[in-house]
């Protein structure tokens, strides 16, 4: 370990130890006991509040939206006049298409970039460090900025696709690409170097080693990352508002049709903004549909990661 960090560690350790020693020599044990119990209670309370708050989101949507749950929700189109018969069909199909596009774009590009950065990119070269920092930064750029990028670069500007579904897919793909790259890198990095050495020592080329040893071993982690990224893409609303999904459409969308498309979260948002309570019930029902899908996907992803975490 390098010297500066070592001294940092020592400094922290001595500071901590000194404070604790001073404290323990000067305070009464009984007070300590009470304070400790109170502190513990506060921690539990905080965690309970956090979990309760997040659970409340789900429960509230379930209670509010329950009356609207039914086959009509999936088969009927939206309506501004007749909320009792309105549904989400075009938006559901729109989201399905959007996500198909995202998967097609993000899986090869994200995994490819991760392989390059982990296996080929020499960290002593400045451009590789730049790419790395750049990916980390992109992961933190607000989603609405990607909406602006989609509007200025994909819908208009250089690509000039217009407000079509593919433009929405591209925008969402760019948005979640850094997440996929970071997760895939973690998974690839977790494969121990001894596996690579073993393969190379047999005379396998670098690509053969990556393709037949590293990638298969990294698959669970990569899948986890891809699922988490896709579930994020399903729920993203803000960038879609800017690239054309905001239009109120009653027909099924197509990939390239230029008369508008819709997406599940955008239609939910649209319903929620209307003052009539019937529309809010619809919005809540839409939220349930979305949450069921997302929570199932995320649970599977987290389970998969924890299942294979201790492999090495």
């Amino acid at each position: 370990m390098a010297d500066p960090t070592e001294t940092e560690r020592v400094r922290l350790a001595t500071a901590g130890a000194r404070a604790v020693t001073l404290e323990s020599l000067s305070s009464q044990p009984r007070g300590d006991l009470f304070k400790g119990a109170l502190f513990y209670a506060l921690l539990i309370l905080a965690l309970a509040v956090a979990l309760a708050g997040l659970a409340a989101i789900i429960i509230q949507a379930a209670v509010k939206g329950a009356p609207a749950i039914g086959p009509d929700l999936f088969t009927n189109g939206p309506s501004t006049l007749n909320p009792s018969e309105a549904g989400f069909r075009p938006a559901l199909i729109g989201t399905l298409y959007l996500i198909l596009g995202v998967i097609v774009l993000v899986v090869p590009l994200g995994i490819g970039a991760a392989i390059y950065l982990e296996e080929y990119g020499d960290r002593s070269r400045w451009w590789n460090r730049l790419i790395e920092l750049n990916v980390q930064n992109l992961a933190g750029v607000p989603s609405i900025i990607y909406g602006i990028l989609g509007l200025a670069f994909i819908v208009r500007g250089p690509l000039d696709l217009g407000f079509i579904l593919v433009a929405g897919s591209l925008t969402l793909a760019l948005l979640v690409l850094p997440t996929v790259i970071l997760a895939a890198r973690e998974a690839i990095r977790a494969v121990p170097p001894s596996i690579r050495e073993g393969s190379l020592a047999l005379g396998a080329t670098q690509w053969q080693t990556i393709r037949r040893q590293v990638l298969p071993a990294a698959v669970p982690g990569v899948i986890t990352g891809v699922i988490l990224a896709i579930s994020r893409a399903i729920g993203e609303t803000a960038p879609l508002l800017l690239v054309g999904a905001a239009t109120f459409v009653t027909f099924n969308p197509t990939f390239l049709g230029d008369n508008g498309y819709s997406a599940l979260p955008v239609l939910i948002f649209n319903y929620a903004q209307r003052p009539q309570d019937e529309f809010r019930v619809l919005a809540a029902a839409g939220v349930i549909v979305m949450l069921v899908v997302l929570l199932a996907m995320n649970s599977f992803a987290v389970w998969l990661r924890n299942r294979y975490e201790q492999q090495w």
Partner: peptide, 29 residues
Amino acid sequence: RKMIGMVFQKPNPFPKSIYDNIAFGPRVL
């Protein structure tokens, strides 16, 4: 490395079946 093989300090089998561990080398070559 095809001609000069190496065995490492810590056993480093591939996370595969016993058969595939041995078959990997002949297959890639």
